[in-house]
Design a protein around this nucleic acid. Structure first.
Lengths: 188, 188
DNA sequence: CTCTGTTTTCAGTATATACTGAAAATAAAG
DNA sequence: CTTTATTTTCAGTATATACTGAAAACAGAG
């Protein structure tokens, strides 16, 4: 690896963190490199920069593509595949969260859906099923909320996030006065 | 392992998912078992239920304790340590998210903090640093928002999440009319 | 069609992580 | 203090995951 120190630190960090983020070192480093690069890179350039085997890089890129974290691009008169990350960092967040939801949440949700349909026999099972139901409802609630956020375009999402504290006050206010809040025509 | 089928399915699923959630099979299964149990369990009972070695269970419990996902309890005239999960499922979420933030976000944030202080030399480094700055600001923003949510008590948090769609409308409304919204005395 | 540059696959190997059993540490009870 | 119940540590081993190199598949150019 022979990268400018600033870039190297970042790339190595992403490699190390990879395992905590459910991706491996190779994938982490490749993503970091592409994120910092001011132009799309091809697999050979990545091999050159990071020192992994060609096949390992190919697999890493495939995984990143499956998570919609990299985009395939082409240059005129060049048959090589070039890879790039999204321009808008919020698109990165959206794709990242979606990929993790699919991997980490969706399987559990469907397991819960099927299991709460079954008939509990003993009291122990009854209690267990109640807890599972509780978890199921919570995940569904968070998922519903997440899907709504996912639809917000960047500008509104940012504004919404920056409102955080004020929204908190807003609910405090609502709570104290007990007046329903008119936002659109719809009410609670 | 000899558990009621309903419980066994759930426990095994948590074990399998463990690796995707950054915990291992043992930790996943132990947590699942404790979550479903209607009473605190001691290490021997967990060994009995799951078939892991005593030491593996001890390590798993230690890890769960470090993430504040299990609580230590004692019974009268019994020297054994008993473990239990939180009553309120939202407390579980709060502790879970906090544990993951510490592991998965905090180290990156401090790496970024230190790296954006350095002096870039080349144009390539300048561009890279700009991208790092962008990432840093985004993570800080999300963290700030998260900390505010973390402070909300369960009832308000649930109400807030259920508002999701309406808040979206609310911003649409704001956007169209361009009137600042009065919530408390403070304004934008 | 063949040739050439490129990507993908996959069996084998290396590395990292999880797990165990035995021994050490701890802490309550006598 | 010693004894006994319990938890923790840790070196060694097993298992799972990552990584490589060689070969196969693919795709555009002639």
């Amino acid at each position: 690896m022979n990268l400018p120190p600033l870039i190297q630190t970042f790339v190595l960090h992403f490699g190390e963190m990879g395992s905590r983020w459910g991706i491996n070192r190779t994938v982490g480093q490749i993503y970091a490199l592409l994120y910092l690069s001011d132009q799309p890179l091809n697999a050979d350039q990545i091999v050159e920069s990071l020192g992994f085997s060609r096949s390992n890089v190919a697999m890493g890129l495939k995984e990143l593509a499956s998570m919609n974290l990299v985009m395939l691009k082409h240059k005129p008169d060049d048959r090589k595949d070039y890879f790039d990350t999204h321009e808008d960092i919020w698109d990165i967040v959206r794709n990242l969260v979606e990929a993790r939801r699919k991997r980490e949440v969706e399987p559990t949700l469907s397991m819960l859906r099927s299991i709460i349909l079954e008939q509990p026999v003993t009291d122990v099972e009854k209690h267990a099923q109640k807890k599972m139901h509780e978890m199921h409802d919570l995940i569904e609630m968070l998922t519903r909320w997440y899907k709504e956020m996912q639809r917000l375009e960047t500008e509104r999402l940012v504004r919404f996030l920056n409102m955080g504290a004020k929204i908190y006050d807003f609910f405090q206010f609502k709570n104290k006065t007990d007046h329903p809040i008119e936002t659109t025509s719809e009410s609670d």
